[in-house]
Each structure stands twice: as structure tokens, then as C-alpha cells.
Amino acid sequence: MNNNGTLVISLDFELLWGVFDKVDHKEKTTYFKNTRQVIPGILNLFSEYEIHCTWATVGMLFNENWEDWKENIPEILPQYKNRNLSAYDYGNSIPSFETEFLCFSKELIRKIQNTPNQEIGTHTYSHYYCLEEGQALASFRADLEKAIELAEKMGIELKTLVFPRNQFNESYLKVCYDLGIENVRSNPTNWYWKDTQNDSLKNKIFRTADAYLGPKNKSYRLNELKVEEGKPFSQKASRLLRPYSSNKFLNDLKLKRIKSEMTTAAKRKEIYHLWWHPHNFGENPERNLKDLRIILEEFKKLKLTYGFRSENMNSILR
């Protein structure tokens, strides 16, 4: 890769599969309609600013409808102790024509696929929880194989994986590698990102505060990352882009912080890895797109001044 600084963006594309255990889908109709509409807006901005991005996509989104979904259930399922986490239990409880737009999005996947510089990666097939009690290597392999199978039917070769809810599981890396996954996203090194399974209130408070206060150096050099034979390359996330806040002071502070961190990365010739969920833009979509444009305008300036580059998780290694 080029030795200049690099902006890497990865998005966790989930729709309802990412939050079904936390929300009532009947109350999220407008939210997810906005999400589906905002994704083309994100892609238009990426095209305008020539931004590369990895879309880590839940495999269930590749289905056309509930009939397809039922035909594509893996032979081995995760046996979570907390059954509320099972996408299969949940899917069997809500199948209807009205809920299909919450759970399937083959047309949006095609739109991403047809947009220059976009990589479609995987967020596992079922938004698989890799640290929850009841998960196992065999069910994880079956889950990932199903995601690969459906992607291949669309001519997509999955090379990158993002663990759902950032439940990074070292013991699953060899399975990923054996199935052709070359890159995974790992968590920031801050202590409040280490225990993503239990996700205590204290951790949530510090993660939120980190968007506005505290140490600003979030970038790194590629050669600082650990490379192990027989395992995918682990690329560290730098910053979660939090959604628009109606508190102007906090929202401006968030944007100022990101722009400052990008500038540091550009000057030091380091990597700055920004990530979020498309559904984070489901509330106040126009405001969120405006914030994204502000960030990309800053990228454009840094590109002209320092040769700052844009890469996705796969292209950065080419």
C-alpha cells in the first residue's frame, strides 16, 4: 500500500437483525424505512468523494423473503443459553409480508455491489454472538458457510468479517481463515472496549464520553498490528461515528474531534479507521448525512494537503 495516511471506513449493515433482542420492531417502522432510504445517500456521498468502504453485511439480508429465509437455515444452530439472542427463534416469531423490509435487502446489497470502491464483507449470517454462552465452533462454521454460500450466488467473494457487537473471539479466527476470510476488525485497545459481552454501564459511559473527551490519538501504523500465520489480519477500529445529536455543542465537539484525529493520521502517515451502523442514521437522516459530508470535506482537504487516502478493509492490504 501507499505510505501516506489512510482513512478506512467499515459499516455494520444489519437492519433489524442487529437489534431484534433490544427493540420492538413495531415501533421501529419509520426508523428502518429511513435507514433503507439513507443508504443510497451514503453511497452517493462515497461516490462523490471517492470513498472506499467495507460493508460488513448480515447474511440473512441476502434472502428475498421469509420463504427464502426458511430454506436457508443452517444445519447446526447456536444454542444460546439466552434464547432471546437467537435470530432463528425471533425470525420464526415475526414472519409476515409487512416485516420483510426490516429483515431482507437484496436490492440494497446490489446497489452497494454496483457502487465503485465498495467491499461487501460479512457480519456473519445470523448476527452470530461469538462470546455468548452456548455458542460453539461447529455452529459458527455452519453460520459462516451459509453467509458465504448466499454471497457467492450474487457473485460476491467474502474476504472481510466484522464480529457482531464487537464480540471478538480469537478461537474463531482459524475457522474464518480456513473459509477464505482474510481480514477481521478488532476492537480499540482502550479498557472499556475489552469486555463487549457484558457491556457494563461503566463501559458504555466511558465509550460515550470518549466521543467528546479524553485522549485523541486513535490512529496507528499498519506494521503495529499483529500478523499470525493461519489467521486473518486483524485491523483495529479507531472511532465509532456516533449519530447526530440535537445538542449542538456536543455534536460540533464530536465532529471537531474526528476531524482532528483524521488530521493527526494524515500528518503522521497513519491509519484512521472509522465505523458505524447505517441504521445509526435512521433518526435525523438528513442531519446525519450532513455530518458525514462535513467529515468527507475534511478528508478531501487532507487528501489535497497530505495525500491522505481512502481504502476499505480489503484494499488497504493490496
Rank of each mutant, 00 (worst) to 15 (best):
M1N: 03
G5P: 08
T6Y: 04
L7M: 15
G18F: 08
V19Q: 07
V19L: 01
D21Q: 14
K22T: 09
V23H: 14
F32P: 00
F32A: 04
P40F: 14
G41F: 06
N44C: 09
W69G: 01
P78Q: 07
E98A: 06
T99E: 14
T99F: 01
F101Q: 06
R110M: 09
Q113T: 04
P116R: 11
N117T: 04
G121T: 12
G134K: 04
A142D: 12
L144Y: 07
A147C: 02
L150Y: 02
E152Y: 00
M154K: 01
M154I: 00
E157G: 12
L158H: 02
N166T: 05
F168T: 06
L173I: 06
L173M: 13
I181N: 00
V184W: 01
P188L: 13
N190M: 12
W193A: 00
W193K: 03
L201A: 13
K202T: 15
K204F: 06
F206W: 11
F206P: 01
A211D: 14
Y212D: 13
P215V: 05
P215G: 07
K226W: 05
K226N: 07
V227M: 13
V227W: 04
A237K: 10
L241S: 09
Y244E: 06
N247R: 12
L253S: 12
H273F: 04
H273Q: 04
H277R: 07
H277D: 09
H279E: 13
P285M: 03
K290A: 10
K290G: 04
K290R: 06
D291G: 11
F299P: 01
F299E: 12
F299I: 11
K301T: 05
L302K: 06
L304V: 04
L304W: 00
L304S: 15
F308Y: 15
N314C: 11
R318I: 14
R318P: 02
